[in-house]
């Protein structure tokens, strides 16, 4: 069995009102140590008010090769953008 500590991905909430954002990764033997290490590594200068950690192996990700078929539906539906519709100036801001 590997003697290397598992890899964790670290997410930090910068301030209240913002969502957690991926900031980097680190190695730790368990979740508790991962949070402590994340505190030491990623919040030395007031960067955060909340920390999430998740073991990297539990993250599922889309693959770059699927980029085309995955995002095509959003390219072909321009009417989803408000600017698709011309609204007369007379009706005011909409």
């Amino acid at each position: 069995m590997s003697k290397e500590w598992p890899l964790w991905e670290v997410f930090i909430r910068g301030q209240h009102g913002l969502s957690h954002r991926h900031v980097g990764s680190l190695h730790a033997p368990d979740a508790e140590m991962a949070i402590k290490n994340a505190r030491d590594v990623y919040t030395r200068r007031n960067e955060g008010v909340s920390i999430w950690v998740v073991e990297a192996q539990h993250i599922a990700a889309s693959s770059p090769e699927e980029k085309g078929p995955l995002y095509e539906p959003s390219n072909s539906k321009v009417y989803r953008h408000p600017t698709f519709f011309d609204i007369p100036e007379e009706v005011g801001h909409m």
Partner: peptide, 13 residues
């Protein structure tokens, strides 16, 4: 220290 912490982490899990 690294080995001990890893063993502890695995035991808890």
């Amino acid at each position: 220290v690294r080995d001990g912490l890893l063993a502890h982490g695995r035991k808890k899990a």
